[in-house]
């Protein structure tokens, strides 16, 4: 049984592409045959994040228009067994593909792959509709900011209204020092607001920038916290029981005292 999972957010720049690259890479490391599909036509980036930008010959639009077969457009990632990328076209726009065509592509990919991850463009227009067309499940990525959470709420509403009823949340770029200071919404704050289950939390990590610079997904980095968080999240995605990563929540005595006061004074 294969599964098509769309990674979406509404707002741009919250980490959809990075999340797609890392979950996909780790799925292949776990032995699953995985296809990454970039649907951000005109603004493709998944190829760059994966470090595969120099190997593109054909793209998604070429497949849709019959210029090549699907298998010809799939780029095999030589570093990870069973990992393939279907890049977006860079010189076209979102109207070059429609939802029916996307569904046909995902259906064809289902025959060969265990997991098909769709990297959705920002926005709620045609690109979004294309991306969710063939999906069984959606992962909604947000950051702990008002604008990103608001857009995530809108996306959850649109997913509910479409056929993608199975969706989970990923909170990206959480900064524990700011959370402790009370200057960033914590996991509970966001979960209070959004009507969705939590798949995982990714800490803000400078190593993400470094790994993107190199075109190597951080999930292969044994030492980085974000890499560990992506590994845990992916394990939960495939049904393994992994607790949420401990994001350095070692409160000192002062913090505990403060929390005590906060609770008593708000009553």
């Amino acid at each position: 049984m294969s599964e098509v999972i769309v990674i979406t957010s509404g707002k741009g720049g919250v980490g959809k592409t990075t999340t797609t690259a890392n979950i996909g890479t780790y799925l292949s490391m776990k032995g699953f045959k995985t296809a990454l599909v970039d649907t951000d036509i005109g603004l493709r980036n998944l190829d760059v994040v994966m470090g595969l930008e120099n190997r593109i010959v054909y793209d998604l639009v070429d497949v849709v228009e019959g210029q090549c077969r699907l298998k010809q457009a799939l780029i095999k990632d030589k570093r990870f067994d069973g990992l393939y990328l279907l890049p977006a076209a860079q010189t076209r726009d979102k109207t070059a593909v429609n939802p029916e065509q996307m569904r046909a592509i995902t259906d064809e990919l289902r025959q060969d792959f265990d997991y098909i991850l769709i990297d959705c463009p920002a926005g709620i227009e045609q690109g979004f509709k294309n991306a969710i067309a063939g999906a069984d499940k959606a992962l909604v990525v947000t950051t702990p900011e008002v604008s990103a959470v608001r857009d995530a709420d809108r996306i959850i509403g649109l997913l509910e209204a479409s056929d993608v009823r199975d969706h989970m949340l990923i909170i990206n770029r959480i900064k524990m020092d700011m959370v402790k200071r009370g200057d960033m919404m914590n996991i509970d704050d966001i979960m209070d607001i959004l009507a969705i289950d939590l798949l995982g939390v990714i800490p803000d990590d400078e190593n993400i920038v470094i790994s993107t610079n190199k075109g190597e997904p951080i999930v292969v980095d044994e030492k980085s916290l974000a890499g560990q968080a992506y590994r845990n999240l992916t394990q939960r995605l495939i049904g393994e029981d992994v607790p949420l990563i401990n994001l350095d929540i070692n409160y000192g005595i002062l913090d505990k005292l403060k929390n005590l006061f906060k609770i008593s004074s708000s009553r």
């Binding site: 959370v179 009370g182 919404m185 914590n186 607001i193």
Partner: peptide, 10 residues
């Protein structure tokens, strides 16, 4: 000297 801007955000 601590603010609590997350409550404002929420």
């Amino acid at each position: 000297g601590k603010s609590n801007s997350k409550n404002v955000a929420k």
